[in-house]
Amino acid sequence: MSSRSPRRPRLVSVVAFASAALIVLTGCGSSAKDTKDAKTSAAGDGKAGVTLRIPDPGNNGVLARGKKDGSLDAALAKVNAKVAWTGSAGPFAPAAQAINAGQLDAALGSITSAVAALGQKPSFKLFGATAPDLAGEGILVKSDSKIHSIQDLVGKKVACSQGGTSEYLLLAALRQAGIPADKVERVYLRADQTAPVFSAGQVDAWATWATYSVPALASGNARFLADGRALGSDNYSVWAVRNAFADKHPDVIKAFYAYLHDAGTRELADPAAYINVFTDSGPTAYGAEPKRIQIDFTRQGATVEPIRPADVDRFGKVARFFLEQKVTPALVDVKPHLLDVDSLPGAAG
């Protein structure tokens, strides 16, 4: 692969990447209640217990279900803890900044975005991993596009988020096809701003994950050029926890992990029960076709597990790939930032 630097991306969005952090951080810790929760989370409270601050899950998934039916509260109560929903779930980069700023205790991301964040003086560790979503992530093109192979991307514009899942998928596709990275123009956009740009034809393709591929596919106006399976993706989902919180409350992290694992197992058996948890209508709800696609993707997925040696090897592979592709300026060693959840004190069930 060529060692030349990639063509300088053209920024279609007028909102800089820092705005993504600001939007999420604005929802993190600004109210009096959040301030109180922050103090409780950091120091603990003999009467009220410990507060675990995580992003609000929205309308889908195991945490949405746990929020609605109280099962997450019940699981944490066993270790004298409770949850505080702080901000909104979204890209991991701003969540990592919120963790580093002491405004968030745990968040979900991808190993690709985690590698990028770990190269910037992080204050978090990874404690759980879910196998790559080989069905839901990949590179989208318009349904009527004349692009039918990765080779057809040469000279084209592809939307992606910088330094995470999107950029990883695009670069992995190009490497697999033997195409130098600078032969394709990367258009850096926030994931939540890309759909209208893609729909308007301002970019030729879009590297993304299930949160955004599901509605795009359901619209009938998009198709996968290549999904994660075709690309041999190593893009694990990972859970991160603030170091200070894990050091003081390892039993809470173990209880939270156990909840995620068990609830994820139930979700695989009955995906429909974890979609449209709070409402079947409105902008956060899936219609019939998106729901069908998401159910199919979920059934092909996995639940969160402890981070095993084989996972560590694949994390290292991602880190080396990002260095080779000049996404990171130096090799990021993931190993010092891993937490063995099996070794933590406290009941696992």
Rank of each mutant, 00 (worst) to 15 (best):
M1Y: 09
R4N: 13
V14R: 15
V15L: 14
V15A: 14
A18S: 15
L22V: 13
L22N: 11
V24E: 07
T26C: 08
C28P: 00
A38N: 05
R53C: 05
I54H: 02
D56F: 03
N60Y: 00
L63C: 01
K68D: 07
K68W: 01
A89V: 01
A95G: 07
G102Y: 12
G109H: 03
A116L: 07
L126S: 04
A131P: 06
A135K: 06
G136H: 03
L140V: 10
D144F: 03
D144G: 09
S145Q: 12
A159Y: 02
G163S: 15
L170G: 08
L170R: 04
L170I: 05
L174T: 06
G178M: 03
P180L: 10
K183C: 13
R186M: 15
Y188P: 00
D192F: 09
A195N: 04
V197Y: 08
F198C: 07
F198M: 06
V203Y: 06
N221Y: 08
A230P: 02
S233C: 06
N235F: 07
V241K: 02
D247M: 04
A255F: 04
D262P: 00
T265A: 15
A273H: 08
A273K: 14
A273L: 05
V277L: 10
F278Q: 09
R299G: 15
G301K: 02
V304H: 14
P309T: 01
D313N: 14
A319C: 03
V327I: 12
D333F: 01
L338M: 06
D340C: 08
P345R: 10
A348S: 10
G349A: 15
